[in-house]
Design a protein around this nucleic acid. Sequence first.
DNA 1: GCGATCCTGGCC
DNA 2: GGCCAGGATCGC
Length: 269
Amino acid sequence: MPELPEVETIRRSLHDLIADTIREVALSAVAPIRHTTAAQLHHALVGAQVEDIARRGKFLLFRLVEGPTLILHLGMSGRLRRATTASPHTHMVLQFAHAGALHYIDARRFGMISLASAAQRSPCLDHLGPEFDDPELTSPIWIARCRRHPKLSLKAALLHQGLVAGLGNIYVCEVLYAAGISPLRTIGATTDAALARILVAMRTVLTRAIAQGGTSLRDYEDSWGRKGGMRAHLQVYGRKRQSTLDGRGHVVRVVQQGRSTWYAPEVQK
DNA sequence: GCGATCCTGGCC
DNA sequence: GGCCAGGATCGC
């Protein structure tokens, strides 16, 4: 469900947990734990103080004052909620000394709960590309990274977390609309100038989406249950047989790699 | 590269 | 009943 702007919004909604201490950890029998065990999670988390909460791509990182980092990915349906009553899909509850309970809820269980060693090495994070706002991601470096994947469609390339971390289905469609380039075009058939436009569009769209608190289509909310406002600004995503929001084209849906792509052929070449 | 697969739920 | 869903991984 959540892409980078939604995960970033959730991260910001957890600010009051920093410096708080985890009193208890409860894990469901089917919690999507990866690369670690329930026992290791208990050992690492109970009694631990939160140093800070960071984000890497779509991953949330709870850095602890001592010990490893708790890594959460929300998959398609994952969410974090302040709550007192567990739902059937609550897989982890962190009970904090001051802030109360934080519930990790994930009906489809595509998300993951993991630990990174103190050295910050993690199989989850190792292959991620740069952050969209990394100042070292200059236009020439971006173009060079793209050129490693000449056969990939732009849709597939931007979804690939190893190229740049954090984009998902909504924002790939929106970025390519903002750049005026077809999602079906391959990188090999895309000019340097067009790739540079994509980098600019990515930064513009994601920055705006974060400012809007993310996109709430169905059930996305931050940890306090607040919805995001970006949906009202989407140009193409989900607008089947409608015009684009700005009225410059009409939106069609095609399927790439088994996933819906929304774009406006008159505007995106 | 691409499709299948992991899951549950909502909607037509 | 079938199709669709903010994702990522693992096989040909």
